Amino acid sequence: MTLPCITPITTEYMRGVVETENTPTGLILHRLPAWARAQTSDPQLTMAEAQPSGIRLVFTTEATEIALQALPTKRVYTGLPARPDGVFELVVNGKVQQQASIPNGDILHIDMAKGTATQETGTAGFASFAGLEAGIKSIEIWLPHNETLRLVALHSNAPIAPIAAPTAQQRRWVHYGSSISQGSNAAAPTGIWPAIAAMAGNLDLTNLGFGGGAMLDPFIARILRDRDADLISLKVGINIVNGDIMRRRAFGPALHGFIDTIREKHSNTPLLLISPIHCPIHETTPGPTSFDFAALAKGETRFVATGNPDDVTQGKLSLQIIRDDMSAIVKGRQQTDTNLHYLDGTMLYGARDFAMHPLPDHLHPDGTSHRLMGERFAELVLAKNGAFAS
């Protein structure tokens, strides 16, 4: 790359990041701080938190050509089709204009049947954007929501300058959720439903959506408590069911404790609890969720519920029970907490939506449904009389 201006990437150019880590091959972006990472041994959460969902580089420039140098880590699953390369999106003055990918990088070979993973070392590449309009402009580069990477530098044909964040017109929104919030099955980083909602409402998003990781971990509550935020939302339930990690007796107190921790410093911040979207395999059937191995043998990814619906009488959790309990918990706390709100997740994606746009793998919405969810969130939550109304 021969562009004359090379800018080291520092936190002043970043939005939505929690912590950065310097390495010899580039800057790793984290959505959990080191102290929290030390409190979990879950490899799935460790991988998800280092995937920069919702993180973007923001700056102004007169450049007409920009290239982001980075070293991605590609995931290759034994027996499954190759995953598409992560997508970088260029947003100019608030409008998505271009997409790019970096085909090279490290490769992580994962064998789900054996439970093994091996890494192959690669080289950095460039996500390049050319033909930009002349003159000073506001630029955002949204990073892949589902691909770990290390940032090296920004290359451009004119200098760049950071933008103070957030702007006076932007409210800071911190959202916590599962793989659906991280963006599983979305095609691009601005196509995940929290990003769609944030862009519609001019919100400064920090996305703490972690694939397989929305388990009401206490360290997440402390992160939310200590994070500067004007708005906080929690979309919980699906991972607790498909991980089969707790029973009904534990769920209510865990959710109460999670809210209590956040309220230690955000006593009046609008706090929205969102229950799970419609997911037929777990509406009345508890977890755990498993891969459909017959589908895997055909090179397809699908999930199945392995629990027994009769076990709900013994305290196991289904999505319907989760919704009932979340609604009751919020209703009870609203007697003394008027800034606590509840949204039934099926208002974002319900049974009728499933009939028109089924979950491709039986668990995660597709790109069309992500857009539907983001637009509905804006209509229901950000509009007048919504929980996050201006």
Rank of each mutant, 00 (worst) to 15 (best):
A168G: 02
P33R: 11
A117F: 08
E120S: 00
A186R: 10
P4S: 09
V174H: 02
V381Y: 04
R222I: 07
I220L: 03
N93W: 06
A305Q: 04
T148Q: 14
A305Y: 03
Y349M: 05
A168C: 04
A221T: 04
R263K: 05
D230S: 03
R371Y: 10
M47K: 12
A328T: 11
I160N: 07
A50K: 14
P309E: 12
Y342M: 06
V18G: 00
L57W: 05
T368G: 13
L132I: 05
N242K: 07
T306D: 11
A186L: 12
P358M: 07
D344Y: 10
A387I: 05
S318G: 12
R371H: 15
E62N: 12
H282W: 05
N22K: 14
L272N: 01
R249K: 14
S369D: 08
L359T: 04
R323F: 06
A165R: 14
V236G: 01
T23N: 04
I66E: 00
L205H: 10
V92L: 14
D42Q: 06
A134P: 01
D204Y: 06
K331I: 08
V241I: 13
S290W: 09
V96K: 14
M347S: 09
G315C: 08
L205F: 06
D353W: 00
W35H: 13
C5K: 02
G367P: 11
V18F: 00
L372D: 07
L90F: 08
T313M: 12
N268V: 14
A82W: 04
H109A: 05
L340H: 05
Q170F: 01
I274C: 03
F126S: 13
I196H: 01
G315W: 12
Q98A: 08
D344E: 14
S267D: 15
G252Q: 13
L271G: 07
F388C: 00
E19V: 07
G135E: 04
M326H: 11
E89K: 07
R15H: 10
E283C: 02
P360L: 10
I238C: 01
L343E: 00
S179F: 15
A130L: 10
I262K: 04
W35A: 11
M356Q: 15
P24K: 08
G105T: 07
Q51K: 15
G105R: 06
E89D: 07
N242M: 08
G367N: 13
G191Y: 03
V312L: 10
V92H: 09
K316F: 15
R37K: 12
T118V: 14
T306L: 10
R37H: 07
E283F: 01
I277E: 02
A134D: 07
A165P: 01
P360Q: 10
L151W: 03
G307K: 00
A188M: 12
L359G: 07
V96D: 09
D85F: 10
R56V: 12
A67C: 08
R150H: 12
D361R: 08
R352K: 14
D230Y: 00
Q44C: 06
N185E: 14
Q69R: 15
I262Y: 03
I141N: 01
L224P: 01
H278A: 05
H370Q: 04
T206E: 09
T7S: 10
H145S: 01
D42A: 06
P358R: 06
L90S: 05
P103I: 07
M1V: 04
G350A: 11
P358D: 05
R248D: 03
G125Q: 06
R15K: 09
M373Y: 03
L296S: 02
M326I: 15
A297N: 14
S101M: 13
S53N: 12
T368W: 12
N185R: 11
